[in-house]
Write a protein that binds this DNA or RNA. Structure first.
Length: 874
RNA sequence: GCGGGCGUGGCGGAACUGGUAGACGCGCUGGACUCAAAAUCCAGUUCUGGUGACAGAGUGUCGGUUCGAUUCCGACCGCCCGCACCA
């Protein structure tokens, strides 16, 4: 066989890894069947965008997923571990514009390259289920989902103020705007009014929030982020009657408040500059118009908001206070009121809201506290610079005096609900959400076409299911900015499916986040001619363990949660939550290198040396001094990447896999370094040596348990079974760095074991080696196969069951308890496992060490925690 | 500003529900093997004092609870992440 090496030789991963990969492939070991009766386990890593080439940093989460997949397979599960490509999106169009290459060609070429790269890593992926979201087969089903969602009332077409990215020339979702800039282009986003397609994610706001509580295997951090994003707030919508005629004849002004209890502290009303009434006022009031224009000029970026002072314009309008006879409140237009939340208007209570206080202080409005802390003196309690938002009792508030905040809210709501203004109740209890509907229209070519047709007489008409898919045309040009579909000569011309008259296709395509919102469901039946096969999807889902970056904590994960709800409503599957377990992994970081004031250099061009504690770098070819820069996330732009090819060539994939999961906990970043890789590689060689150097005298595989184990043999057997227990536990909890530490430990025990030529010693040695191989197999699958074969097995490790720890060996007859005197460890105390408290106490008091440290004092107290510790207090 | 997390040797990091602080790895030091080197193996490696047995100190700082605190509580310092005029 090509991979066999004589036992004296070093392990040669280059040949061995390719060999075992081909064996796995030939036997189809990782192809999984939907008919398999064993319990299912679905492990999935967030699929990659095919950007060009993969570097080792991309492969860490796939390695984690692969460890889980291989472990679960060994535990007897039917494991689904698929891979695909999130293949639509802007970079393909950018490449088209820059390099005159078609987005489709560019994308599929990248996929081919990256697939080969991934295969070098030896992941146990079911490649037969692979697809790309830009495959017509996939996006055709996505169009089907769109039509079904529309049928179910989950798609809306509405005119909305949207975030317009002037560089990418497209609309962005709120989630895609970061600090006022496009998440991809970095350009300052403008506000534009456009008619767009929306998914009604806000219909599920309450449910999406509520069900977060049940996601116990999600990181707390992600749940909190989603909770904040959904942003539920309970309050009251209140109508304030105008005290005099308004320009346009409104009877009342409606505001939303979460603090109706502070109504007696109200000092003013404030409208958003985008409020319809503000616009009407501006038509006749030049100063109002100027103020609104000024507000719009101010950016919406984080810096702009932070530095912006509260400012307002007094419209001259007045409203009546609902409870104070004769009192009126001025109506301002204010720069800090958002149109997008509540009604776009508020009442200001300066004493109990910091923003309102800042505003009131600037314009000399009265600050009247109406809530005071329980123990505050009503005479002296005052609010000047800091609003009081804590708990307390109401005062200065007429019929609310003495009530708690909650009682006050309820009382105000009760009274106002009973009154009528403008043909409706003066107040309505309302729940508001920060979460907006999901605008999915993108003015782009490389995305899933929205299957709708616009007809002059029939309006927006869905493409009949029989006419799907609406395929992207191949003959397009990228000479001008904007959407090539929109200026394509023929593609958009189509007859109306309803009336047959000439009509035009929707030329917008879907946000690429739609593509990734259901791919996990498609993997369960990737070739089906419906989006899913519901029974199959329900059998596989939810994903048992999902692994990916924290950067998707909101966008992708929230959209996917919405999608399964929508797919449930439309009968494509029947579950609520797509991902039962979520793990967010840390990144791979690497030092950066650059020539003094020059460009970044890739690691392979740099030689790093260390002498007397300082590290220096020089150019591998020229010898010139190189600056060692900060440690950063591996990225093309910093050129601090390492490719799977180099690793595979020099050390093998197993070394890389082992290294990436050693040392650093998986949720934290790991620093890639040459020294670290060397260290991991030494361990690979060490395992190989332990196996090859021992195998001559070992009993054949499967020899029955002998008797007559020596003390050392027993110790090794205990270590073996402790390792099985500990590694298993660590992998179950995704604590890969600990699992690796336990494997190291077992290797150390094996290295120190003298087996002599006793049958029992050799048997214990074999047992330990086999455990070492099986326990390290999920991490280093190629090495494990080579070792397993060397140990004389016919079956592959990939077909072998996970080892079981023998409980009898883990139960020790004697236990060593730390012996403390006054809380400080002084000695060890060896007692029988089932020794009574009294026996242990007596033994402790009899101990010389205890006597010495008590220095003649009597023991006042002896604390015995069985199996844990003994503490003598004196 | 609000919310969350973290702070342990030269370094990455362990320590289950309050019970031996520093597992495991990297690095370093010494030794063995070798003509020599690499590789490998063995020993040591928190700090201070001591040849040594050993003793004292020690988990960001200060305090508290406890027989006992890296772990729980309070205050503070530092770092990281998320959100941010959401009424």
């Amino acid at each position: 066989m090509p991979f066999m090496t004589a036992s004296t030789e070093r392990y040669n991963p280059r040949n061995v890894e390719a060999y075992w990969q081909s064996v796995w492939e030939e036997r189809g070991l990782f192809r999984c069947s939907n008919e398999d009766p064993r319990p299912k386990y679905y492990v999935l890593e967030m699929f990659p965008y095919p950007s060009g080439r993969i570097h080792i940093g991309h492969t860490r989460n796939y390695t984690m997923g692969d460890v889980v997949a291989r472990y679960r397979r060994a535990r007897g599960y039917n494991v689904l571990h698929p891979m695909g490509w999130d293949a639509f999106g802007m970079p393909a169009e950018n490449a088209a514009m820059q390099n005159k290459v078609h987005p489709k060609e560019w994308t599929y070429a990248n996929i081919a390259t990256m697939r080969d790269q991934l295969k070098l890593m030896g992941f146990s992926i079911d490649w037969s289920r692979e697809f790309a979201t830009c495959d017509v087969d996939y996006y055709a089903q996505q169009q089907r989902l769109f039509l079904d969602f529309r049928e179910a009332g989950l798609v809306k077409r509405k005119s909305a103020k949207v975030n317009w990215d002037p560089v990418d020339q497209t609309v962005l979702a709120n989630e895609q705007v970061i600090d006022g800039r496009g998440w991809r282009s970095g350009a300052v986003v403008e506000q534009r009014e456009l008619t767009q397609w929306f998914f009604a994610i806000s219909d599920y706001a309450d449910d999406l929030l509520e069900e977060l509580k049940g996601l116990s295997r999600w990181p707390e951090k992600v749940r909190v982020m989603q909770e904040k994003w959904i942003g539920r707030s309970e309050g009251l919508k209140v109508r304030f009657e105008f005290a005099d005629e308004t320009v346009s004849g409104e009877e009342y002004l409606e505001v939303f408040t979460t603090r109706p209890d502070t109504l007696f502290g109200a000092a003013f009303m404030a409208l958003s500059p985008d409020h319809p009434l503000a616009a009407k006022l501006a038509a006749t009031d030049e100063k109002a118009a100027a103020f609104i224009a000024e507000c719009h000029r101010r950016g919406t970026s984080a810096e702009a908001i932070e530095t912006a002072e509260k400012s307002g314009y007094d419209t001259g309008l007045r409203v009546r206070h609902p409870f104070v006879e004769g009192a009126v409140l001025p109506v301002y237009i204010a720069n800090f009121v958002l149109m997008g939340y509540g009604t776009g208007a508020i009442f200001g209570c300066p004493a109990h809201d910091q923003r309102d206080l800042d505003f009131a202080n600037r314009y000399g409005l009265p600050v009247k506290p109406v809530v005071k802390p329980e123990d505050a003196d009503p005479e002296n309690f005052a609010v000047t610079d800091e609003a009081y938002t804590g708990p307390g009792r109401l005062y200065h508030s007429d019929f609310l005096d003495g009530m708690t905040i909650e009682e006050g809210k309820d009382e105000v709501a009760r009274r106002l609900e009973a009154r009528t203004i403008g043909g409706g109740p003066q107040a309505v209890r309302e729940v508001n959400f920060r979460l907006r509907d999901w605008g999915i229209s993108r003015q782009r070519y490389w995305g899933c076409p929205i299957p709708m047709i616009h007809c002059e007489s029939c309006g927006s008409v869905p493409v009949p299911v029989a006419d799907l898919p609406v395929e992207l045309p191949d003959d397009i040009d990228f000479d001008k900015p904007g959407n090539p579909l929109d200026r394509h000569p023929t593609w958009k011309n189509v007859d109306c499916p309803k009336c047959g008259k000439p009509a035009r296709r929707e030329t917008d395509t879907m946000d690429t986040f739609v593509d990734s919102s259901w791919y996990f469901a498609r993997f369960t039946a990737p070739k089906a001619d419906t989006p899913t096969i519901p029974d199959v999807a329900d059998a596989w889902l939810p994903v048992d363990q999902y692994i990916g970056g924290i950067e998707h904590a909101i966008l992708h994960l929230l959209y996917s949660r919405f999608f399964v709800r929508a797919m449930q409503k439309t009968g494509h599957l029947d579950l609520k939550e797509p991902f039962a377990g979520l793990f967010t992994q840390g990144m791979v970081v690497h030092e950066t290198y650059r020539e003094p004031n020059g460009p970044f250099l890739p690691p392979e061009d740099v030689i790093v040396e260390e002498s007397e504690g300082t590290r220096r770098a020089r150019h591998a070819k020229t010898g010139a001094a190189i600056e060692i820069g900060p440690i950063e996330k591996m990225s093309k732009s910093k050129r601090n990447t390492v490719g799977p090819e180099e690793i595979s060539r020099n050390y093998g994939a197993d070394t890389a896999r082992w290294f990436m999961l050693s040392d650093s906990p998986p949720e934290r970043d790991v620093q890639w370094s040459a020294a670290g890789v060397e260290g991991a590689h030494r361990f690979v060689q060490r395992v190989w040596r332990l196996v090859t150097s021992a195998k001559e005298g070992l009993p054949p595989a499967g020899t029955a348990l002998p008797s007559g184990f020596s003390e050392a043999d027993e110790a090794l057997r205990r270590a073996t079974h402790a390792a099985i227990r500990d590694v298993t536990d660590a992998i179950e909890n995704l604590r890969f760095n600990r699992a690796i530490a336990f494997v190291h430990d077992l290797a150390n025990q094996i290295g120190g074991h003298e087996c002599g030529d006793r049958d029992s010693g050799l048997w214990a040695h074999r047992e330990a080696l086999e455990a070492l191989v099986l326990l390290s197999a999920p991490f280093m699958p190629h090495l494990a196969e080579a070792c397993w074969q060397t140990l004389g097995h016919d079956k592959l490790v990939a077909e072998t069951a996970w080892p079981e720890a023998d409980a009898a060996l883990l139960r020790e007859d004697e236990v060593t308890l730390p012996l403390q005197v006054n809380g400080k460890k002084r000695d060890d105390l060896v007692v029988a496992r089932d020794a009574s408290k009294e026996t242990i106490e007596a033994a402790a008091l009899a101990s010389e060490t205890v006597q010495r440290f008590l220095e003649g004092r009597p023991a006042r107290k002896v604390i015995v925690v069985p199996g844990r510790i003994v503490n003598v207090v004196g």
